[in-house]
Simulated scan of single mutants.
Amino acid sequence: MSAGGAGPTLVLVIAVGVLVATGVILLLERSLSRILLGVILLGNGVNLLILLGGRSGAAPVVGTAPTGELSDALPQAMVLTAVVITFGLTAFLLAVAYRSWYLSGDDEVQDDLEDRQIVRLAERNEVSTADLGGEGPDNDPEQVDPGPALRRLRRRRDQR
């Protein structure tokens, strides 16, 4: 904050812009590890933006300073809540990225088969048929292929 308490400095505003812009760019990537970094940067940028929206001043403890000189406690409480939410989302995305890497050996988000079909039908200007299910586990292309993970486990077993 600035020395007079009038508002945020230009450096903090630029830091918010850089954090949010970098976070959004990373969120648009196909790699789950980059998406994870984007969520972290975006969360930090938004937390800093929330803090900049509050009034600066003394610690918001009653009796330590006159009431007009206390900082606003609401943005601080909101940032604390946002930090916890960002941490939970980060832990979830980290688990998803690890599971994706474990199953496929890669953390890249693949195109969905139904999305490809919709694009093909849209190019031909046709209407898609509904997925009625009932294919069974062997014939359903939407099921995860455990092949790479099983091959990795077999390699480890064979090396012993």
Rank of each mutant, 00 (worst) to 15 (best):
V13T: 14
I14V: 15
I14N: 12
V18Q: 05
V18E: 08
V20D: 02
V20K: 01
V20T: 05
T22E: 14
I25P: 01
I25V: 14
L27W: 02
L28F: 13
L28M: 14
L28N: 13
S31Y: 13
S31N: 15
R34K: 12
R34Q: 12
R34E: 11
L36R: 01
L36A: 03
G38P: 03
G38I: 01
I40L: 05
L41A: 04
L42P: 01
G43C: 00
G43I: 00
G43W: 00
N44T: 08
V46Q: 01
L48R: 02
L48G: 03
L51C: 01
L51S: 01
L52W: 00
L52P: 00
G53Y: 00
G53H: 00
R55A: 08
S56W: 05
A58C: 10
A58P: 06
V61T: 14
V62T: 14
T64Y: 13
T64W: 14
P66K: 02
T67H: 03
G68E: 04
E69P: 02
E69A: 12
L70Q: 07
S71Q: 15
S71E: 15
D72Q: 12
D72S: 15
A73V: 12
L74G: 01
Q76T: 08
A77W: 05
M78H: 04
M78K: 08
V79A: 08
L80N: 08
T81D: 04
A82K: 06
V83Y: 05
I85K: 04
I85Q: 08
F87R: 01
G88I: 11
L89C: 13
T90P: 04
T90A: 07
A91M: 07
A91L: 11
A91C: 09
F92N: 09
F92G: 11
F92L: 15
F92E: 10
L94F: 11
V96A: 11
A97P: 03
A97L: 05
Y98D: 10
R99W: 04
S100Y: 09
W101H: 12
W101M: 07
W101Q: 08
Y102T: 13
G105H: 02
E108P: 01
V109F: 07
D112P: 07
L113R: 11
E114V: 13
R116Y: 03
R116G: 09
R116T: 07
R116E: 09
R120H: 14
R120E: 15
R120W: 12
A122S: 11
A122P: 01
A122K: 10
E123G: 09
R124L: 14
N125G: 06
N125K: 10
T129G: 07
T129F: 07
A130E: 15
D131Q: 15
L132E: 10
G133A: 06
G134Y: 03
E135D: 08
G136P: 04
P137L: 08
P141Y: 02
P141D: 05
E142S: 15
E142Y: 15
Q143K: 13
V144L: 14
V144G: 05
D145L: 12
P146S: 13
G147D: 13
P148F: 02
P148N: 07
L150S: 12
R151M: 15
R152D: 11
L153D: 09
R155P: 03
R156G: 12
D158E: 13
